[in-house]
Design a protein around this nucleic acid. Structure first.
Lengths: 217, 217
DNA sequence: ACCTGAACACCGTTCAAGT
DNA sequence: ACCTGAACACCGTTCAAGT
């Protein structure tokens, strides 16, 4: 019916239901696919098919899967909305809010945290944010070396935490494995690990680290 | 020549050059293969071939690749030699040495850190160590909830740090990508990130976190 | 310019068969 | 009991061809 030329109305130039392909659009679609089906079920071919296009069309925009995964990491970072961070506040306010936002963005995509955690994010937005944070630390009185080291520690804790939490949450859903009844030591850890409220240990670690850094300045 | 029966000497029952297969032996061989060639070049088939055996023989010992990766994570953890930790010392000494050992074991296998970081390690050795550390924290005066949360924060920072560092070190070797000359902000970060001495920021973060926790007790 | 689809060199995993 | 190898249903990536 609607195959040959324009639609029966004929006015619009029959825009395809799918938006034009582009790097950010494809990266978002890939991330959505991973969110829905998990990383292990993702493939370049399924991405093309899901996009309503030939499985190989994606290679017109990305060199390979690594290139696509780099873009996915940038997509996640962009969800931080760094512009709305309290840039006029103290170094500690900026650092704390940045880490909380990063954690939030990562945990919104539990199946993709490992993609983010296994590559440096080198988008301009990410680099500029890093520079801005480090400059703020220096203004607050930290040495350049300290400022860099502190920013890296905070990010590493945040990413490590989000990765660990994502793994636990996803694992709890898929694993029904019995609690290894033999080892009595298992229960104390497993019970606590699978406990939902334990998610809130991030604040304790972040506060401890920030307190420790505050003593340096 | 040596194909048919025993060797010309004939005394020994012609022991194969390769040791008997077992889960720990296969896991170690897989880890060595990943250390040498990187994770992306690893495959179940190459593992069998590298073991001098049919590519499918490994499936007699491991259910699938996930099962093998679990065992690789346990192999790395076993390199900690937890028994030699200063269990008679303060909670802080135990915590600090544990994190340093864990970092060391992870960085000895940069291509496998992501394997360790993306799954909970549930070997008896790992679980017992976790319990022992948490009990020590409680003895030192932390509440049970605090003890658990603190141990998780320390581990998350350590793993996040090791993963980040491994990624940077491996990336620096494989990437010759020009420094994106347009963005002037790139250099300050890239220069610092690729700087070898920056590796030593782990101590600063660990000390800050431990100081912060010490104030809680 | 952008998309297609055949082709290549691999994968992980299963399973009937060998010894 | 343990290993083999053919077979299945996929992969990522390349590239000549289409429109």
């Amino acid at each position: 019916m609607t195959t040959d030329k324009a639609t029966t109305a004929g006015t619009r130039p029959s825009p395809p239901a799918r938006p034009a392909l582009s790097r950010p659009y494809i990266a978002s679609a890939a991330l959505a696919l991973i969110d829905a089906g998990g990383l292990s079920a993702f493939s370049m071919r399924k991405l093309g098919t899901g996009l309503g296009v030939d499985p190989m069309a994606v290679y017109r925009y990305f060199q390979d899967q690594e290139d696509l995964f780099d873009a996915i990491a940038e997509t996640i970072f962009d969800e931080l909305d760094v512009d709305s961070l309290p840039w006029d506040g103290t170094w500690r306010e900026v650092a704390e809010r940045y880490c909380l936002r990063l954690r939030e963005a990562l945990l919104a995509h539990p199946h993709a945290v490992s993609i983010f955690a296994t590559r440096p994010v080198r988008s301009p937005a990410s680099i500029d944010t890093g520079v801005r944070i480090i400059e703020g630390f220096q203004t607050a009185g930290f040495t350049p070396a300290q400022a860099l080291q502190i920013s890296r520690c905070l990010r590493e804790f945040t990413v490590g935490h989000a990765l660990s939490l994502a793994v636990i949450r996803l694992g709890a859903r898929s694993r029904s494995r019995k609690p290894t009844p033999g080892s009595s030591s298992y229960n104390i850890l497993a019970q606590a690990a699978d406990d939902t409220e334990i998610d809130e240990h991030f604040d304790i670690g972040l506060t401890a680290m920030l307190n420790g850094f505050e003593a340096l300045v």
